[in-house]
């Protein structure tokens, strides 16, 4: 309860700060428009104004403050402008429309999910191999760990272009990027999880002379679940970033990344912000969904 109140306070403060930030950020543009519309602007000389900071301009032109929250193409759109745009492009548009954010979101989401699925399956398989084979462990594991420290997302543009040149386009190239971005966190987390049973638990199964398979299904796999879910959450967030970045280099026309890119070409700030929030909401939903599954699964297993 207290936590809820605290979170709401923090969020409200952030939104308040956002509105405040809009004033100096957009003041220059607003004054230009106001002058054109015939209003008295201080100082009247546009060249002098350009040299001044947004704050001091706002102090001298108090009348223009409300306009900073209602510009057509503001440098920083106000929260309600973004909210309205989000509403317009999700609920008010037909899902099949090219202007619907749901449509663009789905394009990105489908690539994310496909890639995430592939990456997770391969990651879990490799982890199982690593835990059971000493050679694989010693050969592959150091590289999997190192891969976590390098910006492998830099490979994204190349993958898109290379796959394009061999005739593969559409969802697959993006899914490949999503897959390898989620692959490594899953490998590392899953190996950790499969190794989490302690010596006593393993010794117990040895006294029952359990086979490797039985040990895996009855002890290692259940014990790895909390670790798996922790890395799945990291993995899906990475997958989404991968899919978005995968839409940048080819100048794709659909998807959240394409919306970001198009918005930045045409200075459509409200569109950028709403695409950004669309991506954020999508990420939050995906991570939240995984969290929910985690809770249910762990509860069923008596671990939470």
């Amino acid at each position: 309860m207290r936590q809820m109140l605290a979170v709401l306070t923090v969020v409200a403060t952030l939104i308040g700060l956002w509105y405040l930030a809009c004033i100096p950020m957009n003041m220059q543009g607003v004054l230009v428009e106001a002058e054109r519309a015939g209003a008295e602007v201080s100082p009247p000389d546009a060249a002098v104004r350009r040299e001044m900071g947004g704050v001091s301009l706002a102090l001298r032109n108090g009348f223009a403050v409300p306009a900073t929250w209602a510009q057509e193409r503001p440098r920083l759109p106000a929260p309600h402008q973004v909210a309205v745009e989000l509403w317009d492009t999700t609920v008010m548009k037909k899902i099949t429309s090219k202007r619907s954010l749901v449509y663009h979101g789905w394009v990105t989401l489908s690539a994310t999910l496909l890639g995430f699925g592939i990456g997770t399956v391969l990651g879990v398989l490799l982890a199982v191999g690593i835990v059971h084979s000493r050679v694989m462990d010693m050969s592959v594991m150091p590289w999997a760990i190192v891969s976590q420290t390098i910006p492998i997302i830099a490979l994204a543009p190349m993958i898109i272009v290379v796959l394009y040149s061999v005739g593969v386009q559409g969802i697959i190239p993006k899914a490949v990027i999503s897959a390898y971005l989620s692959f490594f966190p899953v490998v590392v987390g899953m190996v950790k999880g499969l190794r989490s049973p302690d010596a006593m638990q393993l010794d117990l199964l040895r006294t029952y002379s359990a086979s490797k398979g039985e040990t895996f299904w009855k002890l290692r796999l259940p014990a790895s679940m909390p670790y798996l879910f922790a890395s799945l959450k990291i993995g899906i967030a990475a997958s989404l970033v991968g899919a978005i970045v995968g839409e940048l280099p080819t100048g794709a026309v659909s998807g959240l990344g394409a919306r970001l890119l198009a918005g930045s070409y045409y200075g459509q700030t409200v569109q950028i912000w709403s695409a950004l929030f669309g991506a954020a909401i999508l990420a939050a939903c995906l991570v939240g969904l995984l969290g929910l599954i985690e809770k249910t699964v762990l509860k069923r297993m008596g671990m939470a």
């Binding site: 970033v241 991506a279 990420a283 991570v287």
Partner: peptide
């Protein structure tokens, strides 16, 4: 921390 913050790049 879990959001795709790289998206702020164009802004």
């Amino acid at each position: 921390a879990a959001l795709p913050i790289v998206g702020t790049a164009p802004i």
